[in-house]
Each structure stands twice: as structure tokens, then as C-alpha cells.
Design a protein around this nucleic acid. Structure first.
Lengths: 175, 175
DNA sequence: TAATTATGGTTGCAAAATGGAACCTGTCAA
DNA sequence: TTGACAGGTTCCATTTTGCAACCATAATTA
């Protein structure tokens, strides 16, 4: 599979990866999420070249994750803001942060904490079941072929990664 | 910041990104997570070149996310398995999948579903507060400078992305 | 008034990462 | 003894990225 084909996968993780499978994109989204909205802020903070940043911001605009807002007409200054689609990445950013906090920590402790406004406490966000609300732990859930893979399989359209995922998951289901 | 320096960030999302900031690494982890353990399975399913796959697998071993297991001595066959550190990425994979399900879906529906063994239902895993158990929605949590950033700031060690994140978050805290 | 600085870029070229294809070693199966 | 498969390695072309210089506009400073 060439890189351009990655986005054509049925698997949602694959599709999402096609947007974030490069050095900077996720870090740029992080910066905007944390409040760095202007070109120069993002560029200086990440040390990414302007060239590359222009490229990535345009890509993110094309993908509908951010939009450009002219906030000062006389100065002609822009800020980049997250759309609903972009904002909705917060579980990914938080999950990645939690993983980093746990597995790549240094001696100074957690760099950023999250305060749940409703209960007022510092929280370590956890994945939970949408039905029963219990934490979704490893080993307490199983994978299942969904309608998306199933339909494509019956039409004989599955190939590559999707096909092998289909096979592995159906195999594990019958066990 | 050069790419090699990304891993030196205090921010956990940055550190985590330094492992996954390339085209294939996260997809490889996904394949192993979904049950594709062998070199040739992963290689064929992703269509990645053997060269690149060797590279990425070695990197993942170095980082402690996977290990190589000789499961057939006479044939000299290996499988790649996730370590605890690698398995612990499941919330990231699931969160990314949920985002893709929502924002990059096609007409056939969700490709993969998760069944919560405890309650028996198909679940859409959600981030929840570790203290009160309520779903952690956008706008219902705030960011806070944690001990990691705080210590480094008082020692004057913050720079680049970390420094600007520190400033933005302290600013939002006082508001 | 002239020179300098800040923002938000673009352009051109060198360096690094990636992809494609061929090749290699060990084992088995026909 | 030929072929096939697993699990790689090597070499080279293509693509992506990084670096540095440049540009236009507006504001600030000397």
C-alpha cells in the first residue's frame, strides 16, 4: 500500500492515521488545543519551518479540522481555530497524554493535569463503557466485525489490511 | 526543534508523538493489537516494504512496546507481541477509532465494534472522570499546570513548545 | 524620514526518510 | 533438485522534510 492509499482503508484507525501519520500534524493540533492560535506562535513553539507549517495548516483546513479566522482586519492577522471535528479529537490527545504520563514520565511528575469542572477534582480520564459506565479495561472487551467491514466483505471488496483484520476478528469471535 | 528533539519535550503528548510521528508505527501496533503477529502478515496486510517494517519493529522493540517471540524453534519462526506498555495503548487506538467512526465514516457503517464483556453490550467507549465516573465532555474540564511543568519552570528549564504551553495554561488558569 | 521589527507567508536547494525491486539464508515439501 | 515460504538485507530512485533566503505589508523606533 502506498501512503495515499492508507486513507482508503475501511478501518477507522487507518483513516484517522492518514491524517495524523506524519511528524507534525498531531502536535499542531495539540498546540491549538492548548491555546496557541497564531502562525508565529505555533511555528516558534514547535520550531517547525514556516514552509512545513503552511503545508500542514492547509492540510488541516482541507480536512476540516481547523479554520482560519481574521481577527484583526487592519493588521491583517489570522488565528487558526479548531472546528467541531478538530475539537472532537480531545479524547485522542488526552489518551495519548495519559499513556505518555504513565510510560514516558520523568522524575518531575505529570506535566499537565485535567480538572473535571463538574466534580472539581483532578482527573485521570479513563475509557468507559457507554452502556454501563464501568471503566473499559483491557481483557474486558472483545472486538466484533461491524456492519462496515461486514458489508464490504459480502460484496467482496475487502483487501489488504482490512481483509486480514476481518479474518482475524471473525476468527476470534468464533472462539 | 529538530525531529529528534521532539522526544525531549516535557509534554506527554509530545513524547508519545515522538514514537508515533511517522506513517506506519501506529498502524503496525494496530495490526498486532488486532491479532496480526507475524512479520509477513503485517507486511502483506499493510503493503509496507520489508525494509521499513524491519526498521519500525526494531524501533518498537527498543521503545519497549513489543517483543519478539520465537514460537517455532525448528522453523525458526517469530511472532511480535505487545508488551504491557504496548497493550496500554488501547485507549489511544480506540479513541482514534471512535473519532474516525464519527468523522470519516462511509455509508456502510462502523467497521469494528467493541463488546464490553461485563455488560454484554456493544459499547462506544467514552472518556470518563476517574473520580466521579461521569463522561468527560468538552467544556467540562480545564487544563492545569502539573508538577512536571511547574518544577521545570521554576528551575528555568522550559523552552519552545513546553514554555509556550506553560504560559498559555497558567494564563487560562488565572482567568 | 529612514531604518528596523513583526507577521504571515513563498521559493529554491540539500538532506533525510521512504518505496521498489532484487537478493540472501534456512527450512520444508513434492 | 526444484520450488516455495518465512524473515530478512542491500541498493537505488523518489518523496518528504529542513534550512536559509527572500518578499510584502504594517508598525515602531531613531
Amino acid at each position: 500500500m502506498r501512503w495515499e492509499e492508507v486513507s482508503t482503508q475501511a478501518c477507522s484507525i487507518g483513516k484517522a492515521s492518514s491524517v495524523f501519520g506524519d511528524r507534525w500534524t498531531l502536535l499542531i493540533v495539540r498546540q491549538i488545543f492548548f491555546g496557541l492560535k497564531r502562525f508565529s506562535e505555533i511555528q516558534k513553539s514547535l520550531g517547525i519551518t514556516k514552509h512545513r507549517l503552511t503545508d500542514r495548516l492547509n492540510r488541516l483546513i482541507e480536512e476540516g479540522l481547523i479554520y482560519k479566522h481574521l481577527y484583526d482586519e487592519t493588521y491583517n492577522r489570522y488565528e487558526y481555530l479548531l472546528t467541531e471535528k478538530g475539537l472532537d479529537l480531545y479524547p485522542v490527545l488526552i489518551a495519548l497524554g495519559q499513556w505518555g504520563d504513565k510510560w514516558m514520565k520523568d522524575c518531575d511528575g505529570v506535566p499537565i493535569e485535567y480538572v473535571h469542572t463538574n466534580c472539581g477534582k483532578v482527573t485521570k480520564p479513563t475509557l468507559s463503557c457507554s452502556c454501563c459506565g464501568e471503566p473499559l479495561k483491557l481483557g474486558e472487551f472483545s472486538l466484533k466485525v461491524g456492519p462496515g467491514l461486514c458489508e464490504k466483505h459480502s460484496r467482496g471488496e475487502l483487501e489488504g489490511a482490512d481483509k486480514m483484520i476481518y479474518e482475524k476478528i471473525s476468527e476470534s469471535e468464533t472462539k
